[in-house]
Amino acid sequence: MPVFHTKTIESILEPVAQQISHLVIMHEEGEVDGKGIPDLSAPVAAVQAAVSNLVRVSKTLPPSGKLSQSFSASLRVENACTKLVQAASMLKADPYSVPARDYLIDGSRGILSGTSDLLLTFDEAEVRKIIRVCKGILEYLTVAEVVETMEDLITYTKNLGPGMTKMAKMIDERQQELTHQEHRVMLVNSMNTVKELLPILISGIKIFVTTKTSGSQGVEEALKNRNFTFEKMSAEINEIIRVLQLTSWDEDAWA
């Protein structure tokens, strides 16, 4: 089970997470063997500078909406950094200080967790962009119900095509970005179904239009077929929206 939800987040945080795990192990050994940690003022100052930059960037973000969560995450990173500064100061005085080692680990973990929350907040914003496109398609699909002439059908097809292409591209990029294999497969399967159903829907509308226009029998049947395809497509797009919002944690909780 991947720890980080996306490959971008994983590529940024996985190396730090591994380093911290290593430090924890050494800390445990250090407590037993009495190994010391010399002055860490310089690397802590580098972390401090990076955190100050993050806080500065966070303050430039809009105060409303979910992006404000990034501000609270950056505050947590700032607090964690304070622990690192304290750890460096304590270690300067005593390289064997156990509380300093605890501060070092707590601070590093706090930075990891705060940065992870921050990146997740931004990832959620990206997901919302994709969901907006999906909802636009869902909304436009309902227009199928008012297509009654061939001219309407041409316009409908012309309008639906680009939106569908955009959605397919976004979903494909997103699935490639996910670390959770099951979510990737779910997105790919649902998107493929939607793509397969699109020509069936167009064909269904065409049959309905021609049957109705010519006054032939089978209008009800054509209507049912069109609606069945429309409902199936809507269900798949809703499934895509659901999966887009899943994280590994949600999946575990659901299981």
Binding site: I12, V16, I20, D33, I37, P43, V47, S58, T60, T115
Partner: peptide, 29 residues
Amino acid sequence: EQILEAAKSIAAATSALVKAASAAQRELV
């Protein structure tokens, strides 16, 4: 983008710090 870059910088600096702490401990063994 700016946040992503800022997060990358923090991750890199923290990684360097933790690495320094781990390496220093190793040297003192």
